[in-house]
Design a protein around this nucleic acid. Sequence first.
DNA 1: GCCAACGTTGGC
DNA 2: GCCAACGTTGGC
Length: 158
Amino acid sequence: MAKKYWLMKSEPDAFSIEDLEKKGSEPWDGIRNYQARNFMRDDMKVGDGVLFYHSNSKPSGVAGVARVCKEAYPDHTAWDPDSHYFDPKCDPKNPTWMMVDLEFVERFSVAVPLNELKENPKLEGMMVTKRGMRLSIQPVEKKHFDEVLRMGRKRSKG
DNA sequence: GCCAACGTTGGC
DNA sequence: GCCAACGTTGGC
């Protein structure tokens, strides 16, 4: 199976690329959307490339790159009453929610802001550039992944 | 802080 | 099963 590419959103106040860099790897918990879960559960494999996107940020944009290092397994925060992500409808014996682990790959010194993604004709059709796109995990085409990587590294050089 | 977009819930 | 109400996401 060919390597796949993804974009995953996080609010940097909650968990940022800097946090991932410090920790090395981290479970991507708290996903409570069926479409996003299905991508993790059904399609993500170890080694897949991930654009780490900072949302609700100034500005929002792609802050770096991560890699899937563990395939989908149950998200235990769903049945932890103390967790922000607690889901009272979730049965631990038949887990509804899953997560993968990501490991740090690369941090752009300056994030590639959303408006530059939108303005780049090579990224036409990329999901994150579409208005009203709230899905927090999105599949990304290889050509788009490579172009965003190029943009991030170019900026990093100054 | 505003509000458009969109997913979920619940009454019927 | 429809759809209005509600809650959340997330850019601006």
